[in-house]
Amino acid sequence: MKSSDDSWTEIIKPKRGWLDINLQEIWRYRDLIILFVRRDFVSIYKQTILGPLWLFIQPLFTTFIFYFVFNQIAKISTEGVDPILFYLSGITLWNYFSDCFSKTSNTFVANASIFGKVYFPRLTTPISIVISNLIKLGIQVILFVMIAFYQVTFNNASININSSILMLPLLILLMAIMGLGMGILFSALTTKYRDLSFLLTFGIQLLMYATPIIYPLSFTSGKLHQVLSYNPITPIIENFRYSFFGIGTFDLVGLIYSTIFSISVLFIGILFFNKVENKFMDTV
């Protein structure tokens, strides 16, 4: 009989080290991630009448509301950019971040029944959420391009696309990483401290107003301007508007700051998520 310790394929131990992260396993489960994405996409709109049209309706309606409230009534400047396009671009990008954040933040609680029965790498769930939202973003970007085309052709709106538009994939990646990182960090903490989930709902709402979505960063000044610059999402939004509308300046320092922030928050998120992963069934 052979029982040398190294021939065991798996050893189940009580506690997991902080750095005991098995990324290879996630790669092995990549088919599951794809199927989760498919499931989310197919199931969400299956019973609705308008189906995927909702993907268009949501940002369009929000844009109109913002247009009337912030542009027509509050008269907040959009730095000469067509207000419809200004708001739609901000909402589209912001929604991606906030969806990634809020939908991954209840990973454990929302999936408790399935996690309680079968083991698979738990990170597959939030990763699949980020990817299915990416598809949603892709569709909404198409909408944005169509509206932009319409506004330019019929309403004399001016856009000024420059070469920095090539950075767009990076900007989206940064938001995905940030949303995922913050989301899984929250999901790990909410398994123990449920109060956090209440904080999160309006926290994200407040965060939107602390991000230049409905106003350009240049609209602010002094201390407020400085505080808003610390928001790691600010450079992403600002850089996108620079590359598409040509307003503001290309902010490399801000982008580097956002990148460092995103990667750090993802790293911390993974650490906490990993730590909670194999114990949470007892506390949920």
Binding site: T9, I11, I12, K13, N278
Partner: peptide, 22 residues
């Protein structure tokens, strides 16, 4: 549940050779 890795033990170990399905 511990064998199928749904939850972790408090103390002790389980060594496994091969894939477990439940």
């Amino acid at each position: 549940k511990i064998l199928s890795k749904v939850t972790a033990p408090t103390k002790g170990t389980i060594k496994i050779r091969g894939r477990i399905a439940s």
